[in-house]
Design a protein around this nucleic acid. Structure first.
Lengths: 144, 144
DNA sequence: TTAAGTGCAAAGGCTTTGCAGCATA
DNA sequence: TATGCTGCAAAGCCTTTGCACTTAA
């Protein structure tokens, strides 16, 4: 006879509950750039009973499992996004708020330089660039 | 009240009150790496009546005047430090919490590269490196 | 007198936690 | 049964704000 598992999937040794599936789906679909409250707002549309506590608890779990990265881009909000194979960083437009991504080999180079010259073993570079995006440079007025 | 004296100094068009002098002195003496509560704790030793609200209000003012930079180095705390002529960034040891500073021309180089290739006008690079400091590499045990 | 700064306490906003109920293995 | 997840509400923490009072100009 076959084992009837309600939770067919595992993350680490933890079950993937319906709530976790939902949250991961949303993160996948939006390709990140969501804070906890936005994630909650989107989640509640598909599961009206899900709670904000569940969102926070699972975001923390996802982080611990290395599935999700948290990025603090301003004073208040953290953005959460699924970890992807290629490391990337964000540019934040201080005029319209748009968040876009970039990568550069100079970041690894910087880490190496610091490791060499400062004897500091770099585990992670926390970085984003603030400035003015292409669209706002053309039309230098407020937010959208 | 305690201040029975004119305000001989001005910051912008704002008077430098006794509280503001005190806060700036502490920031100068500690060369930054203080969060708001630590600043408050140090301040209250010299002026037992100063309030946390005054600390926050003045930190915000100092930021607006460009005297002080705020750095978020972890999930919770912001560090405040007097702005100095040379731009610098921080290395944070994830083992002992020690904060040290570094600079590198690669950061300006990175900004230029992004400006060129992504048509994004960089106003500010928000950066710190997390990792393991020299001392903890030698003695890889917990916090101090 | 008027505009601005301060202290105190209360309120905000985001995040975590305690607890009871449920589901899974 | 034992473990762990969830929803709800309450609590925590950092920060801001309302208000009355004081100070400097």
């Amino acid at each position: 006879m076959r084992i009837n598992r309600k939770y067919p999937l595992k993350m680490g040794n933890r079950p993937v509950t319906a709530q976790r599936q939902l949250l991961l789906s949303i993160l996948r679909e939006t390709r990140g750039h969501l804070d906890a409250k936005e994630l909650y707002r989107k989640a509640i549309q598909r599961d009206p009973h899900i709670s904000l506590a569940t969102v926070y608890r699972n975001l923390r779990l996802f982080k611990e499992l290395g599935l999700v990265d948290e990025r603090r881009l301003d004073e208040v909000h953290s953005l959460y996004e699924l970890r992807r194979p290629t490391e990337h960083y964000h540019m934040v437009c201080t005029s319209c708020g748009r968040v876009t991504e970039f990568t550069s080999p100079l970041i690894a180079e910087l880490s190496s330089e610091v490791e060499r010259s400062r004897e500091f073993e770099v585990e992670r570079a926390v970085l984003h660039l603030e400035g003015c995006c292409r669209k706002c440079k053309r039309r230098p007025r407020g937010r959208e």
